[in-house]
């Protein structure tokens, strides 16, 4: 099944145009973290921004979120500029775009309970008391933290990494955003948790048509999840296009290196491994138990130790 194409009236949700940002390092030298970057995210679209450490992708994420003014250029959310405007106006328009950060332990105010954290984020300010609480519970259930009521009084540090990321997603969707900017949301998570979080993001995309700006160092995730991919290297976008095209036939040498570095499960010598699943649906669904090897059924023998 191919990544579903964005529905509803198309049009840019986020327009980053000609953005540059320098930093002065302690030695006095200036580092250009972001150089003349332009990027657009359309309604319902998922754009993956791929880059390794030092590429400037996190700086760009902050600029996109309206958190860091660029030296040049502008960022527009639903046609409205985010920089150079009155603070009150910014506060009003920015809520259509919400962040999900890496699970670093600092993503939540450690002194607030889950309920308090989500109450801060809920879009409808008129909700109070029990109605607010049941709305929060339904938010939790939507991100598969079930039963929602059991999580209300917990603190973020009491949750597992996977649960915390879901909470971060719950906080993001509480505002009913048009766009979610996710900065390495899977990096802290275990391999077995990543699939769960990605599935959740996919479900949210299907149910609400939310757009994603998905920032990652892992180009393979980008391929599995995004419509379009932009590759960032040393502050610049070096390649930009449709996800399958960029990964199957990368034009830029750096992109080629990234794609080549995608480690598959093919070993050096011996066994034949099943081909890496490319895109979605090019290969038949794997059997749930993953066995593709020799057909001989094995009998088991109990051994004393190894």
């Amino acid at each position: 099944m191919s990544t579903p194409e964005p529905s509803a009236a198309p049009g840019p949700v986020l327009e980053i145009s000609g953005v540059s940002r320098n930093f002065r390092r302690r030695g006095g030298e200036t580092v250009a973290a972001v150089r003349g970057v332009s990027l657009t995210v359309n309604r319902g679209e998922t754009v993956a921004l791929v880059g390794e450490s030092g590429s400037g992708k996190s700086t760009l994420a902050r600029i996109a979120l309206g958190l860091l003014p660029p030296d040049t250029g502008q960022v527009k959310l639903l046609g409205e500029p985010l920089y150079g405007i009155a603070a009150a106006r910014l506060r009003r328009i920015r809520t259509a775009m919400q962040p999900v950060f890496q699970d670093s332990g600092a993503a939540f105010n450690p002194r607030r309970t889950v309920q308090q954290l989500l109450a801060q984020a809920v879009a409808d300010r008129s909700l109070q008391g029990t109605r607010l609480q049941s709305h929060i519970v339904s938010l939790l259930e939507r991100v598969r933290l079930r039963p929602g009521s059991e999580f209300l009084m917990r603190f973020p540090h009491e949750l597992s990494g996977g649960q915390r990321q879901r909470l971060a997603i719950a906080r993001a969707i509480a505002m009913n955003p048009i766009l979610i900017v996710a900065d390495e949301p899977l990096s802290g998570a275990d391999v077995s948790t990543r699939g769960q979080i990605l599935n959740l993001l996919l479900d949210l995309r299907d149910s609400s048509g939310v757009a994603y700006l998905f920032i990652t160092h892992d180009i393979a995730i980008a391929q599995a999840f995004a419509h379009r991919v932009a590759v960032m290297y040393r502050g610049e976008i070096v390649e930009h296009g449709d996800a399958t095209t960029v990964i199957d036939s990368p034009a830029d040498p750096y992109t080629r290196r990234l794609v080549a570095a995608i480690r598959t499960l093919d070993g050096p010598a011996t066994a034949a491994f099943p081909p890496r699943l490319r895109g979605n649906g090019a290969s038949p669904s794997p059997s749930r138990d993953g066995t593709t090897g020799p057909g001989a059924e094995s009998r088991l023998r109990q051994v004393a130790g190894l």
């Binding site: 902050r62 979120l65 309206g66 958190l67 603070a87 506060r91 009003r92 920015r94 809520t95 775009m97 919400q98 962040p99 950060f101 670093s104 600092a106 993503a107 939540f108 105010n109 801060q120 984020a121 906080r171 505002m175």
Partner: peptide, 14 residues
């Protein structure tokens, strides 16, 4: 810390 950025995005006043 990130949670400060997060509440800023929620529109909280400085």
């Amino acid at each position: 810390l990130e949670f400060v950025a997060a509440v800023r995005c929620l529109g909280m006043r400085e």
